Amino acid sequence: MAEAANIGSRSSRWSLQGLTALVTGGSKGIGYAIVEELAGLGARVHTCSRNEAQLNESLHQWSAKGYHVTASVCDVASHPQRQELIAKVSGLFNGKLDILVNNVGTNIVKETTEIKKKTSDSL
């Protein structure tokens, strides 16, 4: 009976100890939950967000729970900021990245015919 009570507990699941992860958009919502789950399972996690205040609040919460999470402000729509993010993550994790969760996105409320195509320079 006690065994059934442990089903679904974090200790009865797998471990991500020693693995590294990058989660974009991790300061709120689904991204926040993903960061917390990965860190709770033992991964070293780096996340990013455009909002520094939300990011700092999230870091404070994770630190209080004992999770190993680092973060940086980054708008992944910006090519130079993406390059800085990758350089930072590479340095933090000694070039080793095991898990990537690309959690950022946008919701454009327009007719499809009104959306302008991006050029390769803006990607």
Rank of each mutant, 00 (worst) to 15 (best):
K118S: 15
K117R: 15
K65Y: 09
G31F: 03
G29E: 07
S90G: 15
S58V: 02
E84C: 07
S15M: 02
Q61V: 07
G8I: 10
A2M: 10
E36P: 05
T106M: 11
H60D: 14
N56K: 04
T112A: 14
G26Y: 02
I30F: 07
G66H: 05
L100E: 11
A53R: 10
E84S: 11
K117W: 11
V73N: 00
A39Q: 04
Q61H: 13
Q54A: 13
L22T: 04
A87W: 10
T47M: 01
V104I: 12
I7M: 11
V89M: 07
W14E: 08
S27F: 01
A4S: 06
L41R: 02
V101Q: 10
V109F: 14
L55V: 01
A71M: 07
I34Y: 00
L19R: 14
S78V: 07
N6D: 14
I108R: 04
L85G: 06
N102A: 10
G105S: 12
L38I: 05
V35G: 01
Q54T: 09
G42Q: 03
G8V: 10
I108E: 05
G26N: 06
A43V: 01
K110W: 10
W14N: 11
T70M: 04
S9D: 15
G31D: 02
G105E: 08
L123N: 13
N6C: 08
K117N: 12
G18C: 05
I115D: 00
S58E: 03
M1P: 10
Y32H: 06
K88N: 11
L123C: 15
R10Y: 12
D75P: 01
M1K: 09
Y67V: 01
H60W: 04
A43E: 01
V69N: 05
I7Y: 10
